[in-house]
Design a protein around this nucleic acid. Sequence first.
RNA 1: UGGGGCGUGGCCAAGCGGCUAAGGCGCGGGACUUUGGAUCCCGUAUUCGGAGGUUCGAAUCCUCCCGCCCCAACCA
Length: 559
Amino acid sequence: MSDEPREKPGNFIRDIILEHNASGRFGGTVITRFPPEPNGYLHIGHAKAISIDFGMAREFGGRCHLRFDDTNPTKESQEYVDSIIDTVRWLGFDWGKHLYYASDYFEQLYAWAVQLIEAGKAYVDDLTADEMSEYRGTLTEPGRESPYRNRSIEANLDLFRRMRAGEFEDGTRTLRAKIDMASGNINLRDPVMYRIRKAAHHRTGDAWCIYPMYDWAHGQSDSIEGVTHSICTLEYEDHRPLYDWYLDQLGVHHPQQIEFARLNLSHTIMSKRKLVELVQQGLVSGWDDPRMWTLAGLRRRGYTPEAIRDFAERVGTAKAAKVVDIAFLEHCLREDLNRRADRRMAVLRPLKVVIENYPEGQVGEMEAVNNPEDPAAGSRKVPFSRVLYIEQDDFRDPAPPKYFRLSPGAEVRLRYAYIVKCTGVERDASGQVVTVRCTYDADSRGGDSRGRKVKGTIHWVSASHSIPAEVRLYDHLFSVPKPDDADDWKTVLNPRSLEVVRGARLEPTLAGADRGSRFQFERQGYFCVDARDSAPARLVFNRTVGLRDTWAKIQKGAG
RNA sequence: UGGGGCGUGGCCAAGCGGCUAAGGCGCGGGACUUUGGAUCCCGUAUUCGGAGGUUCGAAUCCUCCCGCCCCAACCA
């Protein structure tokens, strides 16, 4: 990043840890964990959580575990486990040997459940899901106790053992904690600890037919691992009393749960349900569609892990639910790419230019700097010849006010090549300009204006030397900043979120570019070779993000 | 008619009773420029959801009010 480490913004979680360290609550150790459920792909919001979990641990010389909260076999799969591991690693975080699964603790969890039953703190309930919902009460009315609430400890022990043995069908019984059906906090109204699910688990196979609920698994898993700070998002705030209750009943190591506001990004939706819908209904091409803000999507789009980490740190950590402007993510990206991406010339929508006074058959070699931000990146040679392609947008007849590019009679600099002057155009039957005719100033080699005032510089490629490519231009998937606010979020999908440009022409040095490699196409933006669809003989580039475009603003202002 | 949280500029966000309310993004203006990129300047809240109160002094403490978010899966 920058030479001097950016000053870290204040952070209430850090303050809490500092207090713990001062009071000696955890003996000065800091152990955190990132606990994804393997039921989907990670998105940019997870990057913030990962950054906080791993960041706090690193800052205090502790460690962060990667633990899968795999307690619901019907929704989870190995595919998701694999993608999550791959993604967190790609982001640049390392959990060392501390890779865990809640399913590793099933036996211990079962033993602890038996312990709670023996203490009269848990019971087997025969209520159906619907009945249980009815008994639970509402937000404003207390619930009622289940008729099965006061079974004997012996009966509960027996029933629970038989639940595990598979004697009962799915949904017929649950194990519940005996807490308080009248609590204002609904999580405390005798929460379910175990449900029967005769489903194969991606790790434990058929070993179990009862599975622990999140609340029963999570805190205890934290405890087993010696976690000190269990950092999670705001929606778990009213689960904290339950988190604490279980741990207190068991009398085991008791981590501190701390909640922060999850990340919301403008022009996106973070709901897992909606994300799944986008993918399953084919509204996008997959979890890694470059328009997606999943980490897999951002990665394929060309985002760097560094930029994402920088963004995650810079958005801050607080408790107010806010929506961060996606322009900030893009800013962090440009900042990183500007420093690192080599420059190349690529013409997306070619317009033929003939340099009338450049000898036919002659090929010049123009020296082009690879990265003005990084002298060590060196330079390259780009071929120049009589027939070139320039961007259609770089020629206008007549030229609008303040247009610095090419137009009849105007002079412009061809980047790293020569100053040229437009002498005329050729049009087709419909009046469309098909060829621009120019003359060049041989003394301006390299682009030296030699005292003249040449305001415009445009990029170009030599027609016969250039290579073809498909270029995919992306825009926000949603056309409004807050799709969640729309009556129907699917109606605000941006119809122009993907534009495929097939006839692009690239400078020849781009031939053989590796999949995933990133470049700045001068004056246009940052692009990367698509990791999925590109092939040496058929290059496909993704536009990662455009350059800031002051000209576009001027035009917009001019109406 | 419950419980838990949150309200600082267009968007994030510091601030934790006392110098003129940090910083970033965005936006506007200027300088510079062989990317209308980058970089560099300058500007952008007399005020902290509102109203009272405490105090020599409040965004920071108290009271009331207003607004927003989360919770009634055998999901996490």
